Simulated assay, not measured.
Amino acid sequence: MSDLAKQPIRFLLSDMDGTLLLPDHTLNQHTIDAVRSLREAGVLFSLASGRPPKAMLQQIEALGVDLPTAAFNGGTIVKPDGTLLAAHYLPATTALIALAQFADQSDVEVWVFSGGDWLLKDPHGPMVPREQSGLGYPPVVVESFEPYLQRIDKIVATSNNTELLIELEAQLLPKVNGMAQVSRSQPVYLDVTALEANKGTALTTIAEYLGVPLEQTAVIGDGGNDPAMFKCAGLSIAMGQAEEAVKRQADVVTAPNTEDGVAQAIKKYILPH
């Protein structure tokens, strides 16, 4: 924070769910206006999310984002014209380890994202309606994930039993150490992605593409997948409702997403500098 005046922020990379978006996955006008004020001040703005690319399109349009955006926690970075700036897939052997870890958990639903599709075996799982509402499109039901092993963008274990997901995260991490990223993007979602598919790498890649030094970047987020970009940015901002472990890794903490936390952070920490 003490260096903000010396290093004005030229680029802000923001998480979406739990940060820009309200709990019902909508944007409010205060957030839209705050992002517009950034653009008017000449500050670049883009999005980094655990979502698939096509589940970000509505927000990209609403916010007028015309820069590369990071989907799948940075696994896929898409230019405004739809071409790829970068793509990182989960190695097949690593995917099998993760799928085996989740296979016998009766309280856990397992989803695979591949080639833009949301794949699952049970379309009647209790977490499916929530995900479909957030993504804006339905899943594809498959008998096996094996045909998709060569191009998996993300595996998700999801459950309302958040303590179980914490346990599964701790169990899986040593098994895929050095081979994959494992993090809870939200309390009910445990994401497994390629090692290079993290928001820190995404920030570095996009900033380099834009010609902006990392010291002049800011990031904002609320989930366990956001500290990866906190560590790289010149300024890191955590949302007020984030878990304490996430907030401790940020430079500053703003209000929750239900209280216009992003708009407050932009006004307080970025525009004055």
Rank of each mutant, 00 (worst) to 15 (best):
T254N: 01
E259A: 03
G200R: 08
T217W: 01
P147R: 08
E61K: 15
A255M: 05
S114W: 12
L165P: 13
L12N: 12
L172K: 07
T83F: 12
S133L: 14
I155V: 06
Y269W: 11
K54D: 00
P213W: 00
T76P: 08
L27Y: 02
D122S: 10
L119V: 02
P272K: 08
A98R: 00
N73S: 02
S183G: 03
L119D: 08
V35K: 12
N257C: 11
L172W: 12
T83E: 15
Q59K: 11
Q249Y: 04
I32G: 09
Q58L: 12
P227E: 10
A218N: 01
P138M: 03
P256G: 00
L85V: 04
A92S: 13
S159T: 10
Y137I: 00
T158Y: 07
V246L: 04
A194Q: 04
F45G: 09
A228Q: 07
L164R: 09
F11K: 02
I152A: 10
G116Y: 14
A263S: 03
L67C: 03
Q105P: 05
Y148S: 04
L13D: 01
N161D: 15
Q264T: 11
V112D: 04
F230T: 09
A5Q: 15
E244W: 09
A100I: 06
A157N: 02
P139H: 07
V156P: 02
A157V: 00
E215A: 14
R10D: 11
A202C: 08
P129Y: 00
S114L: 11
S106Y: 12
P187I: 01
H25M: 05
R39Y: 05
P129T: 01
E244S: 13
G234L: 12
R36S: 15
Q186L: 15
D117I: 00
A48G: 10
K175C: 12
A55W: 00
E167S: 15
D251G: 14
L47E: 07
I32E: 13
P147A: 09
F11Q: 06
Q249K: 11
A98S: 09
G116C: 13
H88L: 04
K175R: 15
T162N: 08
G75Y: 05
V176K: 01
S37V: 03
M229T: 14
D66E: 08
T69G: 05
P227F: 11
V128Q: 10
F230L: 14
G82H: 15
D191W: 05
T158G: 07
K247C: 03
H30S: 13
L96T: 14
D24Y: 03
A71Q: 01
E259Q: 05
Q132G: 01
L168I: 13
G64K: 02
D122W: 06
L27H: 06
A180W: 09
K154R: 10
A103Y: 09
E146R: 10
Y209Q: 14
V43P: 01
W111L: 09
G74F: 11
A194Y: 03
Q150M: 15
P227G: 11
T19V: 05
